[in-house]
Amino acid sequence: MIGDTLSQVGTLLATHSIYWLFIILMMTGFYIVVSRGNLIKKIIGLNLFQTSVFLFYISIGKVTGGTPPILPMKLKVDDFSVYSNPLPHVLILTAIVVGVATTALGLSLIIRIRESYGTIEESDLLEINRKIFSRENVQDLQQGDLFKDE
């Protein structure tokens, strides 16, 4: 019984371990996003996560013993050569460019946050926000217009 399970795990290790390597990389990027409070670090972590997902996706299109999907110059596809799947490559090319565009947008948001709040640390931002909102509430209560609309 245990021997069966072990041999099963061994087979899986031979055939699926490359997916697990990419999942470990993804999780490293994810850990940077959720555990570090600095916004620039969060964006860099998101980039690492993204690149690992790309690697995972490309690994689906790989064929053992295959070559890159570039045909010989005479455009003659002979039946003996094996090519890897070109479709994941195309999709990931698009995704890389879109990823840089969203990174640029995120980074410019960080610059605006720094201009308005003077910090790019998550904990400081939460603290400032709490202060602003509590002060507004106090002022509203003092002026008695908290329920003005009703």
Partner: peptide
């Protein structure tokens, strides 16, 4: 990516 045959990527 080169190892995975995706040279363009």
């Amino acid at each position: 990516f080169v190892m995975l045959d995706a040279v363009d990527v």
